[in-house]
Simulated scan of single mutants.
Amino acid sequence: MGRGYNLLSILVTFLVLVAAVTAQGNRGSSRGGGGRRPRVGYYGNRCRNVESIVASVVRAHVRSNPANAPGILRMHFHDCFVRGCDGSVLLAGDTSERTAVPNRSLRGFDAIEEAKARLEVACPRTVSCADILTLAAREAVVLTGGQGWRVPLGRLDGRISQASDVILPGPFDPVDKQKRDFAAKTLNTIDLVTLVGGHTIGTAGCGLVRGRFFNFNGTGQPDPSINPRFVPLVQNRCPLTGDASARVDLDDGSVGRFDTSFLRNVRSSRVVLQSDLVLWRDPETRGIIERLLGLRRPSLRFGTEFGKSMVKMSLIDVKTGSDGEIRRVCSRIN
């Protein structure tokens, strides 16, 4: 009986230790993710005002400079497509992602830093910069007239940011390559077309698009697939000997408004990026555009689909548990 009692005592002690370790792990996971995927309402009572604080800051920055809205939306895309949605694009440094050529024109960093500073006062060491950027991207859409969506939260911030990792879908990519790039991030063709529809706000550098409007493939002529009535408009905005850093609207006729105007322009061949124009030539992407415009059944609601695709994108390779941290300042690791 003494031996049985000892074995029972050892077993009870073991179970108590397991319970203690599990409880400690659960307490850690409530702050750091604990391996769980982000979810709506993640912060709960620990930071009840997280969404309103981010919204207030983004609203002020967009009011002072409307270009911050497309800038923040684009920043979120660039973050998620490189090492996942971990805020790595926010890190500063001589060789960080911010220094890569596609990221040098990003804007909105000040808005993210201000939101982080306010949240560090309201809820110290609780809300990640990756979550702030994800929320800010939604606010950028809402502030320009788009439809909102519920944002899952609970990401952690990554600790690595290297310019050499920045390989993004390009402005001259054919449709097949765009499909492959999005599929590699678990995004389907509807996600591709819908997220490209985000070009309804924002601009492109004249140096990036000028060739198509003056000397397409060395022909000395504009790209023949561009609507001929659209060519002189862009040529006037981006003259051949003009400033290459000047900007031209991605969505002609609906600047700063989040709507389906851009998709209608794709249909009419009135877009400045080659990667956008080719979406109308491919039967699959063309069919999706028609459904988003209500020209084909079953139709798709652009605002609803955009929100769905943004949620999917925001869950790409998120950091949880020991994979990341909650930065105190978004531009540097702790």
Rank of each mutant, 00 (worst) to 15 (best):
10 I>W: 11
10 I>E: 12
11 L>A: 13
11 L>C: 07
11 L>H: 08
11 L>E: 07
11 L>F: 11
12 V>C: 12
12 V>N: 08
14 F>C: 15
14 F>A: 15
15 L>R: 12
15 L>C: 12
15 L>Q: 14
16 V>L: 14
16 V>A: 14
18 V>M: 15
18 V>T: 15
18 V>I: 15
19 A>K: 00
20 A>L: 10
20 A>I: 09
21 V>Y: 08
21 V>A: 14
22 T>F: 06
22 T>V: 12
23 A>G: 10
24 Q>K: 06
24 Q>V: 12
26 N>Q: 12
27 R>E: 11
28 G>M: 09
28 G>Q: 10
29 S>K: 02
29 S>M: 03
30 S>E: 10
30 S>M: 03
30 S>K: 04
31 R>Q: 06
32 G>S: 10
32 G>C: 05
32 G>E: 11
33 G>A: 12
33 G>L: 10
35 G>M: 07
37 R>C: 09
38 P>D: 15
39 R>H: 12
40 V>A: 13
41 G>S: 03
41 G>T: 02
41 G>F: 04
41 G>C: 03
42 Y>R: 05
42 Y>D: 00
42 Y>A: 06
43 Y>T: 00
43 Y>H: 03
43 Y>C: 03
43 Y>V: 01
44 G>I: 03
45 N>Q: 11
46 R>H: 05
46 R>K: 05
47 C>R: 00
47 C>D: 02
47 C>F: 01
48 R>A: 14
48 R>E: 14
48 R>C: 04
49 N>W: 01
50 V>E: 04
51 E>P: 00
51 E>H: 06
51 E>C: 03
52 S>F: 01
54 V>G: 09
54 V>T: 07
55 A>T: 04
56 S>L: 03
57 V>E: 01
57 V>I: 04
57 V>W: 02
58 V>R: 02
58 V>F: 02
59 R>H: 11
59 R>P: 04
59 R>F: 08
61 H>V: 02
61 H>F: 12
61 H>D: 07
63 R>K: 10
64 S>E: 13
64 S>Y: 08
64 S>D: 14
66 P>W: 13
66 P>Y: 13
66 P>M: 13
66 P>K: 11
67 A>I: 05
67 A>Q: 11
68 N>T: 09
68 N>H: 09
68 N>D: 05
68 N>E: 07
69 A>S: 05
69 A>H: 02
69 A>K: 02
70 P>C: 00
70 P>Q: 03
70 P>K: 01
73 L>I: 10
73 L>T: 06
73 L>S: 07
73 L>D: 08
74 R>W: 12
74 R>E: 14
74 R>D: 13
76 H>L: 15
77 F>K: 07
77 F>W: 14
